[in-house]
Write a protein that binds this DNA or RNA. Structure first.
Lengths: 199, 199
DNA sequence: GGCCTAACCGGACTTTACCCCGGTTAAGCT
DNA sequence: AGCTTAACCGGGGTAAAGTCCGGTTAGGCC
């Protein structure tokens, strides 16, 4: 008898989870991440504050959950969408396509992404989705002597870091101009790292 | 008449600044970053809480100031130390050497670096020192068609990100084993990006 | 259907970052 | 030295995150 899932989530708990996420999205759309407080979220959802913390652990945890939810779409496209983002294209092309998609994703959700870092009890840093996908794709490229684990981490941060910094600095310069530059920069970086022969 | 420096820092203010940084270092050494509260720091320094906030703006600001101070040493070595970290070596060698130095720096100061991110009013994200140095050095390498600004940002985050994530996860696995792996990974990445011909 | 227990819920409580503003003092000029 | 003013200092006040524990309820088992 194996305990893969120690206990299924109770039905009311799951309902409250969805309710809280929905309220959070509402508040976020109305007045931005700054104004989303735990008390307000609890009141808006008609629940107690203890419940909010039980579900998400911390303020940052809420934003993390929101971001995870949004990321699932991207993940689906990567796993089973059309190439070159999905399976079927050469790995280097897929890596480049992933970067483009990721840049757009971050540009769209930068407010939430930023808020996941907030707070003293920040949601335990997890290895980002990007790193896992990159690791898989990099293995398919012929890279003799490379430490794939480390390289995947490096590229994942090379992708997210500068863009987020940019989005931190200027509130709303998420226009097409700078993001296009990041997309081109990513393509260039990947081709340098993988060599043009990898495709 | 130019106002390069709008006003020199008042003598008492400068004294208090040093006093506060010294107290902060003490508290940090005694009981770790978690226990450093603004009230405690003010009391320990014999100053008011308002003064602490005036100097540093926020809790994260204190850690930022501490980190800046430590970074100045590294900066000195880069600007005027012996090669290959300092001037006089081929640019690619200097970039590799910088990575090694940076990895060790982060491993040593990871607690403070992490705390820099804490708090809702995090110290306004600045472009890290790494990015500026890398930009200068990359310009000296022949990289046709590269967007140096973007590339410098990418490499700066490729250097800091994975290491910090690692240090976040495990409290004290800052041993030589993982850092050596990051150092090797950095060398490999730089050589791939710059081509072996760049040196 | 009734019981048992573990998980859940609420909301009062504590802690802590951050704000504010009246009183004080350093620095420069005459 | 005396004056002016801008900057500094103190510490009480506020808001919001995170904790705790007694009461409640869902879901499995007989």
């Amino acid at each position: 008898m194996t305990w893969g899932t120690p206990r299924p989530e109770r039905a009311d708990a799951a309902r409250n989870r969805e309710l809280l996420l929905a309220s959070a999205r509402e508040l976020l759309a109305e007045s931005g991440p700054e104004c989303l407080t735990m008390d307000l979220l609890a009141e808006r959802s008609g629940l107690g504050k203890g419940t909010v913390f039980r579900r998400f652990g911390s303020r940052a945890g809420i934003f993390q959950a929101l971001l995870d939810d949004a990321e699932r779409d991207l993940q689906q496209q990567v796993l089973s969408g059309p190439p070159p983002l999905g399976p079927g294209a050469p790995p280097v092309d897929r890596i480049v396509a992933y970067g483009t998609a990721r840049v757009r994703f971050l540009a769209e959700h930068h407010a939430v992404a930023r808020a996941t870092l907030d707070g003293r009890h920040a949601a335990g840093r997890r290895r980002p989705l990007s790193e896992i996908h990159l690791r898989v794709l990099l293995r398919e490229v012929d890279l003799p002597g490379a430490d794939i684990e480390v390289l995947a981490g490096q590229l994942a941060y090379a992708l997210d870091g500068p863009l987020l910094l940019q989005l931190f600095a200027g509130p709303e310069l998420a226009g097409p101009e700078p993001t296009a530059r990041f997309e081109a920069g990513w393509r260039d970086l990947v081709e340098r790292v993988c060599g043009v022969s990898g495709r």
